[in-house]
Structure formats: C-alpha cells, structure tokens
Amino acid sequence: MKPFDYERADDTDGAIATVSDDPTATYLGGGTNLVDHMKLGVAEPGKLVDITKLPYDFVETLPDGRVSVGATVRNSELAASHVIRQSYPVLAQALLAGASGQLRNLATTGGNLVQRTRCAYFQDPSTPCNKREPGSGCSALEGWNRHHAILGASEHCVATHPSDMAVALAALDATVVVRGSNGQRRIPVTELHRLPGDEPERDTVLEHGELITSVELPAPSVSARSTYRKVRERASYAFALVSVAAVMEVDEGTVRDARIALGGVAHKPWRAEAAERELRGTPATEENFRRAAEAELEQAESLRDNAFKIPMTRNTLCAVLRELTREDRA
C-alpha cells in the first residue's frame, strides 16, 4: 500500500473541495471495499477524506411520504430501521443478504453503492484488466467467468456489480442525491451505475469529487408487495450468483405494476424493463411469468462458465413472481 494522507472531514463543502482539488484524493466511508482495494494495490489514493462524521447518519420520513436515507448510515442500521422493515422489506432483505454482520456494521449506504466489482482479475493487479488498467485487456472474457455478466456486457468488460442493496434500490426507483463542487444533483439509482461499454474503468456517472449524501425512496405504496431473493452456493456470506428484487402490485389476479431488478447478471443493477412490460396488465400466471422472464433474457449472452445464469435467473424470477402474487400471502 502506498502512503497516503488522512483527514477527517467536519463539513461537507470542505470535504468536497479537498477531494475535487486533488485527483489522488478519495472519500473514506466504512472502508470495507476501499481499504481492501488499497491492500490489494487496486486503489492507490494519495489522500483519504473520512466522511463518516459528516451529518448523514439519518433515516427520516419526509413530509411528502418519501424516505431519505443518509449516506453514512451503516448497512446494519438501515436494515434494522423500522420504516425500512415495514415499508420497504425488499431493501431490508437485500441489506441482510449482503456480507456479514461485522461488515454491515461498517459499510455505509453511500459506500455500498460505489463498491466495485469482485471480479477476481480486477482484484489481482498481476493480471490484465480493462477496468483497473484501461487498455490492458479483459482476463475474464476468456478466463474464469462463472460470476460474470450475461446482460449488457461489452468486449472490454464482463464484470458484475456486487451490491445487493443497489438491486433493491433499483426496483424501488430510488434517487441518489449527490453533491459536488458545482452544487447538488439528483440521479435515479438506475442511472447511477453504467454499463461497461468501452470505458469499463467508470463504474458510475459520478464525477471526481462528487459525494453521495443521501438516497431517497419514493413514498411506499400500501398495496405493493416486495421481496429480495438471492441465490448463492454458500448459504450466507457470499456474493450473489443471481438475485432478484421485485416490487409488485396485483389486483384480483392481474399484475397492475411490476418493478423488477436483477443482481449478479450485469455491470449494474439490471432493471428488467422487458419483463415488466410483459407483466403489466396481464394475469399473474406461471405462463406469463415465464414469458416475462424469457423476454428479459432474450438479450442474454453467456460466457464459458456462466451459461447457468440464464436458467437460474429465469427460474428465480419466476419463483419470486409466484411468491409475490400468491393469493394467500399475508
């Protein structure tokens, strides 16, 4: 690890100015991903600006019913928050499916969103990786790619985004509030992360120095049901092979609304718009679920080791839809 300066920020604007003015500087939240990457030599910041003492440790319901989650709220706190458990179970479940108790006590909301892929080649500086070292080549494309993308990948990068939380936020249509030296902007979470294209080194649309300050959840719908299903070979403490977050509104057996996001299949939380289109206004039947899943996966492309993700995603999506539309569901 290269030596670096450390400073603990006590005001937001100062922190943003410090990082914006120094191309080697970056923000430190819980550190669970950044410190790991610094040890591996994947990240080599010259300065860390610790933002964990900034005033973003809140989960509050806004007057219009939306819920605002501060960027430094720890994953464990957020999952335990009553408003999240009651009104956004998909989010609580996604958080609880991620990492371990110890890591969730460190990891922050903002940090979780900007965590980077766990592609083994990305994390190993002794192998080529376009995301880590643009132009060096993608080792996963023809290497070990069991955990890699089946949707939206490019010839330059086939990595997947590792977050569970972000998948739930995508299904919830959350908005990310970001501050930079030019002020504040709001980004739909589905537009925060990028597909790799020919710039796989850029995970998100954030500019250097921009800081996520909070995430806003739309006011909960009383009639919506939501859930998060994560498939992994170890029963806990493992990244998703595939995951499905879904928020459904069903009225007398007909799907009124469906918002579905997939994890473990793409460079970003994958909003399954094709599946949603197929489902809206149709009867909640096994046949329609399958048609919707297949519509989404029509564009899927598999690599040497990850072809199983196509049937696994299809089956998992169908199972989730089945569960959320079950008549007897409390």
Partner: peptide, 28 residues
Amino acid sequence: DHGQCGACTVLLDGRRVTSCLTLAVAQD
C-alpha cells in the same frame, strides 16, 4: 486481512466489526 473470515472481529464502540478493514487512524 480482507474481511472475509472474521478472525479479527472486535467490538468497536460496542459493535462487532472486522478490525482488518478499519484504519487505525480513522478510529482515534
């Protein structure tokens, strides 16, 4: 040393955390 085993778990201000992914300087 990468937060993947839990052997380094301590209670930090009463909460269990992996001490290997926590910078000492940030815990002043």
